[in-house]
Simulated assay, not measured.
Amino acid sequence: MTAFDPVRWRPAPLLPEADVRDGALLFVVAVLCFLACLTAIGVIASDRAARGWIGQLGGEATVIVRPTRGETPDAAAARAAEALAGTPGVAEARALEPAKAYDLIRPWLGDISDLEDLPVPRLVTVTLDRKAPADAARLTAALKAQDVDGAVDDHSLWIRGVKRSANLARGLGAGIFLLIAAAAAAVVAFATRAGLAARHDVVEVLHLSGAGDDFIAGLFQARFARMAAVGGLAGAGAAALVGAALRLAGGPQGVTPALPVSWVDLLAVLPCPLAAAMVAAAAARFTAAGLIRALE
């Protein structure tokens, strides 16, 4: 018989340290956190792409120039560029070379050898001032002041489409994240219910010893919060590895220009273990408290 050593003695935990169901719960929580982290990285990357496209579209405008009074298309484009160059809110206005204009319409017309015989309008590209960009009305007024027949495209239609897509991506990401959080809470609640059923005798002994309902519920809360934190750490680590692989495989633009994953995006996985622990703690607390009251 081993002699009792009060120095080395430590009280045993009121709940067992290990359970055969812990591995399955850890795996499920890790997978859910992995999916949540990937969703967050994807939403951040897509939002960055949308902001970049909006910045590029909002910083430029295109003017379609039609020649009048017998002047050549190139002369009309040159007059339009000169008229717009001095407009407040315009950083630069440049007439597009005819060859580039032909290249823009060639894919739509098919294999036509001689496009010079077609009445192709000339284009003027306008770079707007980033601080105080000129709007379409001001550009149109500048053209009319110089008697230039031109149509201004400030890309507002495309900008609205990009903004709409970005908002949709953010909404879908938030919805997926909430669904994953709800699934994690349901899993933890089920595990808490199973754990209480398996340890019904422990709960009764604690009650007989004078332990209150809050104390017993706190034991299950702490247990499942620790497990969820470990699962969240594993899932977040796996998601960070996948994000790093996508960043390395895709180069500076990420996987595609539509999903430019950056190294800073990987920081989005850092709150995952804490968030998983908080969700698990709340789910375990409410479930355990309700079941304990029902057992009384």
Rank of each mutant, 00 (worst) to 15 (best):
V203T: 10
R285V: 14
S165P: 05
G235N: 09
A40P: 02
R293P: 12
V264T: 11
R66E: 10
G218V: 03
D214Q: 13
M227W: 14
V279I: 08
P133W: 11
Q146Y: 10
R21E: 08
H155T: 03
L246M: 06
D129S: 07
R170I: 00
L179W: 15
A276F: 04
D117T: 15
Q146K: 12
G290I: 02
F177R: 11
V205S: 07
R160G: 15
A83V: 01
F34S: 00
A282Q: 15
P6W: 01
V63N: 05
R106C: 06
P11V: 04
A76P: 05
A276C: 00
V43M: 05
A249E: 07
A217T: 09
L259S: 09
T2A: 09
T39I: 10
N167A: 14
L115D: 05
G110M: 04
A211Y: 04
A194R: 08
S156F: 06
G231K: 07
A240I: 04
L259M: 12
L118Y: 15
A18L: 10
L157N: 15
L172E: 03
L84T: 05
A137N: 02
D103R: 02
R8C: 01
G86F: 09
L291F: 12
A185Y: 07
Q253V: 11
G254N: 07
G290W: 14
R48Q: 02
R247C: 07
I180T: 13
F286M: 14
V279G: 01
A181N: 05
L248G: 11
A238H: 01
L139M: 05
A275T: 09
R223H: 12
R79N: 04
L104Q: 09
I44T: 09
Q56G: 09
D19T: 02
R106N: 09
L267G: 15
I41K: 08
L139S: 06
D214F: 12
S209W: 04
D265E: 06
V90S: 00
P133N: 03
R285L: 15
G237N: 12
A186W: 12
A151R: 15
L128T: 01
F215H: 10
V162M: 14
C272F: 11
G171P: 00
A75H: 13
A85S: 05
A244V: 12
P88I: 02
R193F: 01
V65Q: 03
A132N: 15
I44N: 12
L266D: 00
A132C: 05
A77L: 03
H200M: 10
H207G: 13
A289E: 11
D135R: 08
G70D: 08
L96Y: 09
P252R: 01
A249W: 03
D111S: 02
P273Q: 06
T2G: 05
G171A: 06
E296Y: 11
Q56P: 04
A281V: 09
A18T: 10
F220M: 03
A284N: 15
D213Q: 10
A239E: 00
G290R: 15
F215G: 08
V230S: 08
A225L: 05
P107C: 02
A132L: 14
G235D: 07
G171D: 11
P88F: 00
G89R: 02
A229I: 11
P133Y: 05
D201Y: 01
K144W: 02
A280M: 06
L118M: 15
I176L: 14
L196H: 01
R48Y: 06
V43D: 08
F190P: 03
D149A: 11
V124K: 09
L168Q: 08
I180M: 13
A245Q: 06
P88H: 02
V205T: 06
G52M: 04
L241A: 09
